[in-house]
């Protein structure tokens, strides 16, 4: 079973040289800590920076320099600041090659829900709806099941949707899956996790083709 940090590590293996990447709040943020050697990418944060760097050293925080999670950050050499309209032009205009975000539910047709629990939690969608509606390459980083043990990989989302038919891949603490043709396709197992365990934790249709390899972290 993977830790949150290992989920991020597995996703980081998907990074390709020269990509601009948008990382959502939570597990996705950790992807920046695991960029493979020899790969150059630039991180975009939708509040208005390309070329986001690591968190600042204590005492060097700048209130005017934050990420979309409202955390203090630094800027890399070559970074650029821009307004929110320009930021979402990059996103809608498909100038960002990979989007990584968290989810409460993902459906086998690629639908995603991550912004609202009716009557209980309403935080808002932030930039997630714009991101998922336009990005061609969306990886969801999340736990395979919720706190009650129920599957988050479903036949159909029960919560209000953030976007329809948009998720292409999912990395959870149990597995790496591809979402296509209306089903979850199991690509890799987390170390020490059996196909059976993944099957039991997946409510949506799960396609298992041949021997499923373990992840190589």
């Amino acid at each position: 079973m993977l830790s949150k940090d290992q989920i991020a590590q597995r996703i980081a293996q998907e990074l390709q040289n020269g990509w601009y990447v948008n990382l959502g709040i939570g597990i996705p943020t950790l992807v920046a800590n695991h960029i493979p050697d020899g790969i150059d990418v630039e991180f975009q944060s939708e509040n208005g920076i390309l070329g986001m760097g690591p968190f600042p050293y204590e005492g060097e925080e700048d209130a005017d320099l934050i990420n979309a999670g409202k955390q203090t950050i630094t800027a890399m050499p070559g970074a650029v600041y821009f307004d929110s309209a320009t930021s979402f032009a990059m996103i809608r205009g498909k100038h960002i090659q990979l989007t990584v975000l968290g989810a409460m539910e993902v459906a086998q047709n690629g639908d995603i829900a991550n912004w609202k629990i009716p009557g209980r939690m309403v935080k808002g969608m932030g930039g997630a709806m714009d991101l998922v509606a336009s990005a061609d390459n969306i990886i969801v980083a999340m736990m395979h099941t919720n706190k009650k043990g129920a599957s988050k990989l479903l036949k159909a989302c029960s919560l209000p949707l953030t976007g329809v038919g948009c998720v292409t891949r999912v990395v959870t603490n149990l597995a790496f899956l591809e979402v296509k043709n209306g089903a979850f396709h199991l690509l890799e197992r987390a170390p020490g996790v059996s196909v059976e365990e993944i099957k039991n934790a997946t409510e949506g249709e799960l396609i298992i083709n041949g021997e499923i390899p373990e992840m190589n972290l």
Binding site: F88, M125, M129
Partner: peptide
Amino acid sequence: PQGSLAERCRAGGAGIPAFFTPA
């Protein structure tokens, strides 16, 4: 959606009454 909010403000200031977005 955040991008729509930004663009709706921009449109308001730019004399564009409305626009289509996938978001």
